[in-house]
Amino acid sequence: MNTRQLLISLWTMVVKEVRRFVRIWPQTLVPPSITMTMYFIIFGNLIGSRVGEMHGISYMSYIVPGLIMMSVITNSYSNVASSFFSNKFQRSVEEMMVSPMPNWVILAGFVIGGAARGLGVGLIVTVVSLFFTHLDLHHPFLTLMVVVMTALLFSIGGFINALLAKKFDDISIIPIFVLTPLTYLGGVFYSIDLLPEFWQKVTMINPILYMVNAFRYGILGISDIPVSGALIAIAAFIVAFWCLALWMLNRGKGIRS
């Protein structure tokens, strides 16, 4: 395929993915917005008013970046996992496999589509949060970079999950048993300074801690960990996951007999 044909095929993939989650917006865009609104009301407003400040910032403002990031992570991941597995289940993945599209275009199409939903939901949650608190962007470029990189990383993760999945249950195991606990324990609702020293060290192996803190630094200018290390870690994970996903796709893992 020449460059123009590659761009057309990639654009087609992205449009198809975006069209899918927009078509079923009551399942994809509305529920996360409602869930996050509940978090803002209960944790931010009701409980947060008794918690007081964290690092000199109101508790409501403190949890907003973490909740936005939580939406981005779960939606990017589950969009690709669900979409690609549906393609496998309905065998429409064969439409792509019989075409001359290279595998990296297929992967990129799903990943960009997943990131689009993650970022879309993240934007909705951000708008909702403005009804509860005021946000000053301390580092706009860093904020954007972290959220986009995180969305891409978890989209690739969702793709790998869907490639390996044999039934619908298999695409909900990782979000429920891995992503949700790591996100909740990744400093969304608290600073790790509140933890005993031992648990602070344990928390440092949680990759989501770095993403949440880097994003919080971009918005609020505070972080529990060095931001540069977080960026390098996210970039390294993206490269590693991308290579793994592409290798699996090239081998036909989970899709070819």
Binding site: M1, Q5, I8, T12, M13, S99, P100, M101
Partner: peptide, 14 residues
């Protein structure tokens, strides 16, 4: 129509 046009896109057809 989208199914067919999407397939055309996979082949890089404008």
């Amino acid at each position: 129509e989208d199914i067919i046009l999407t397939q055309a896109g996979y082949y890089g057809m404008p």
